[in-house]
C-alpha cells in the first residue's frame, strides 16, 4: 500500500449529484482495491489561477488515501473519461503505509477536524453567553469608559490651555476635579 493524495477540479456548473457521483466512484475504486480513504474533503468553489477548459472557477475535491498504483491509474482513467472533471493531480506521499499507519492517520485527521470544530463552537458559545449575561453590564461599562475618555480629553485640552494662560490655571484645575467626581 502506498499513500497518495489527489486533488480534482470539477466543472463549476455541474450539479451536486454529478459531484457526489465522481466522489463515490473514486472512493469505490479505492475500497474495492482493499485500500482505504484517510481523508475526503470538499473544498468547494475556488478561483482558478488560469483558465482550464474556458472555466474561471472550479470545484475542488481532495482525497487522501492508501492504495495501490493500479487503483490510481484506474481512478485517473475514469477522470480522463469524465467530462465533469477539468483537471486532476495525484501525489505520492509515502512509498509504503501499513494498516496501523492508516488507522493512525485517520485518527489524526479526525482529531484535527474535531479540534477545529470545537474551536468554532467555543467561539460561538462564548459570544452568545457574553451577549446574554453581560449584555447590560457591558453597555454600562462602555458608557463609563466613554465618559472617562471624554473627561480625559477635556482635561488634556484644559491642561494645554493652562500652559497658555497661567492665570486661569486654578479655575481649570477645579473643573477637572469636578469632572472626575462626575465620572
Amino acid at each position: 500500500m502506498r499513500r497518495y493524495e489527489t486533488i480534482v477540479i470539477l466543472r463549476p456548473n455541474s450539479g451536486e449529484e454529478e459531484i457526489n457521483k465522481v466522489i463515490e466512484t473514486t472512493t469505490k475504486i479505492i475500497t474495492d482495491d482493499k485500500g482505504s480513504v484517510i481523508e475526503l474533503n470538499k473544498w468547494g468553489m475556488k478561483k482558478l489561477a488560469y483558465l482550464i477548459k474556458k472555466e474561471t472557477l472550479g470545484y475542488y475535491a481532495y482525497f487522501d488515501f492508501a492504495s495501490t498504483p493500479a487503483a490510481v491509474s484506474e481512478i485517473e482513467r475514469k477522470f480522463r473519461i469524465d467530462d465533469v472533471v477539468l483537471k486532476y493531480m495525484t501525489i505520492k506521499l509515502a512509498a509504503a503505509i501499513t494498516e496501523e499507519g492508516v488507522t493512525e492517520a485517520i485518527a489524526a485527521v479526525s482529531a484535527r477536524e474535531a479540534s477545529a470544530a470545537a474551536e468554532i463552537e467555543a467561539a460561538e458559545t462564548d459570544d452568545k453567553t457574553e451577549v446574554k449575561t453581560d449584555g447590560k453590564t457591558e453597555v454600562k461599562a462602555e458608557v463609563k469608559t466613554e465618559v472617562k475618555a471624554e473627561v480625559k480629553a477635556e482635561v488634556k485640552a484644559e491642561v494645554k490651555d493652562e500652559v497658555k494662560a497661567e492665570g486661569t490655571a486654578v479655575v481649570s484645575k477645579e473643573t477637572t476635579t469636578e469632572a472626575k467626581k462626575e465620572a
Binding site: 486533488i7 477540479i9 478561483k47 482558478l48 489561477a49 488560469y50 483558465l51 483537471k87 493531480m89 501525489i91
Partner: peptide, 17 residues
C-alpha cells in the same frame, strides 16, 4: 510547480489573468 499544475498559482501573469 505542483501548485501551478492544480491552478493554485499562475504559470505566467497575475492571478487575475
Amino acid at each position: 510547480k505542483q501548485a501551478r499544475q492544480i491552478a493554485f498559482l499562475p504559470y505566467s501573469g497575475s492571478s487575475q489573468g
